[in-house]
Amino acid sequence: MAIPGQQELTQLENFMEGIWKQNPVFVMLLGLCPALAVTVSAVNALAMGAATTFVLLGSTLLVSLMRNFVPKEVRIATYIVIIATFVTIVDYLIAAISLELYEALGAFIQLIVVNCMILGRAEAHASRNAPIRALTNALGMGLGFTIGLFALGSVREILGSGTLFGVSLFGPDFQPWVVMVLPPGGFFVLGAWLLVFNWWRNRTPAATGTLKPAEGHSHG
């Protein structure tokens, strides 16, 4: 979340914020509902990441453009209308591109609308910054979210099906770890990644002073 009075970030730092320091999945723990539910394969993870990024960019642009006109009493309502619009657009687009992908992602495309990362970015960043800055930040966040989903999806696909992007890695005799493509697998893999991520952050002294995971909002 943007802290009032903080130093102006350079464009690059602004972009990198979502990828590393405030990664939505690994640091802020936002948007966990899709992160746990659809990441059974790398393709699903990337598609979900791309769809979310699209919604994030679209809503950020509109929110940022309108930031000076929207009275704050109705700002949340405005954001929700805008976000819901882009979610519906992405819903149509995916159904038009590939019905298979559409069915694999299921209700979670529509559920992007309740991903609190998007509303959070609209409130905390897009409504306070000019379009270019806001878009740069949103792109970083979207990429960070996609990277997070891909980290989950690739591990789950490799262990759960023995493939990556549908390409068999271990030959036909591979024993799939069924649990990995079931819901508990999402929790196991997310837990393991958080372990690795936090262990790594704690080892690097430069990372101190940033948000700890516990301070982020859970559930999305």
Binding site: V74, T85, F86, Y92, I97
Partner: peptide, 30 residues
Amino acid sequence: MIRTLGLVATVCGILLVLTYENTLEAINAN
């Protein structure tokens, strides 16, 4: 407030209709 919400709803409505019209055929074919 009403003006803002009306404006937002109009813009969003136009976006939705455009998308719907352009993807309907492909979705039905799929």
